[in-house]
Nucleic acid binder design. Structure first.
Length: 279
DNA sequence: TATTCACACACTCGGCACGC
DNA sequence: GCGTGCCGAGTGTGTGAATA
């Protein structure tokens, strides 16, 4: 054993894993990587941010997680850390949750995927905010990995996966299930987008697509429209929102476009209510 | 006009005290 | 002993004024 590894071992701190620590590790398993402020909001809402961050650091010192810079610069200030699972964290999950550690991705995410993972968590937090404001109820957020594992038993031909599946209930309404897709601008029409949307349409669930910019929506709408016609469903089956707007104004504050260009605020349609159309 | 520097800001980190 | 909260120092980055 080298001096360096001895030093690292000596530095490692013992930690008794609490239920919410396990919960944090589960979230890292589901989302692959999560920022420190995101993890604090998601897993430690009852303690201060600073204490939550300290707990995350202890998890890291105990070897369950690793961290790197998010690289996100939103104005001034030091970029926050993002956390990911290590092999020890994966083994802890196997011990506490029965998930085979060999199937758990560990290590830092590729730079290419980092922003995608972080945006998915941000959208989830925006949904949680909406739930806290009682704009929706019974929110359940399942990442693609878990949901599609279950679904594949019934639809074995379906290979494309949504980034997440959301279950929610509007006030005085029945629960609904929605497929969520985060678009970071890398999809190609025939290679990625069309097989993905066709697979989603087979489930019958509505589709929410979060894109990086408004102009990108026009492209995605153009690609999607024929697929909706082919599946004989209406333009509201697949709707598009801009990430920055959702983060700034919330899920229900942002403008969402149906595939035909009309605007929706996501709230259930009332009888006799007309919606504005995009010129 | 380009460069330098001080400052602001947001976040990290470690120490300390307190309560359980 | 461990978790928590507070505090102050340190770090990395952007901003804007001063200077060559």
């Amino acid at each position: 054993m080298t001096d360096k590894t001895l030093k690292l071992k000596a530095k490692k701190k013992n930690l008794v894993l609490m239920q919410r620590d396990i919960w944090a590790l589960v979230q890292l398993y589901l989302h692959r990587t999560i920022g420190s402020s995101q993890l604090a909001r998601l897993c430690f809402p009852d303690i201060s941010y600073e204490t939550a961050r300290k707990r995350l650091r202890r998890l890291q010192q105990a070897g369950f997680t690793g961290s790197s810079s998010s690289g996100r610069m939103e104005g001034r200030g030091r970029p926050e850390l993002i956390y990911y699972l290590t092999a020890a964290g994966a083994k802890a999950l196997e011990h506490h949750q029965g998930i085979s550690w060999e199937t758990i991705p560990t290590g830092p995410p590729h730079t290419y995927h980092k922003e995608h993972f972080l945006r998915l968590v941000d959208v989830r937090l925006a949904l949680k905010d909406a739930e806290a404001k009682q704009l929706l109820f019974d929110l359940d957020f399942t990442t693609g990995r878990e949901f599609w594992k279950e679904l594949s038993l019934d639809l074995s031909e379906v290979q494309e996966q949504a980034d997440a599946t959301i279950t929610l209930r509007y006030p005085e309404a029945e629960p609904i299930k929605i497929l969520l897709e985060i678009d970071t601008g890398n999809f190609r029409q025939t290679r990625h987008w069309e097989p993905k949307i066709r697979a989603f349409l087979k489930t019958g669930f509505p589709i929410w697509v979060v894109t990086g910019s408004a102009p990108r929506i026009a492209t995605l709408r153009k690609w999607t429209q024929p697929l909706l016609e082919e599946a004989q469903v209406g333009p509201g089956k697949c709707i598009f929102g801009v990430y920055d707007e959702i983060i700034q104004y919330g899920i229900f504050g942002a403008g969402w476009q149906r595939t035909d260009g009309s605007i929706t605020d996501l709230k259930p349609r009332q009888h006799g209510q007309n919606r504005p159309q995009i010129p």
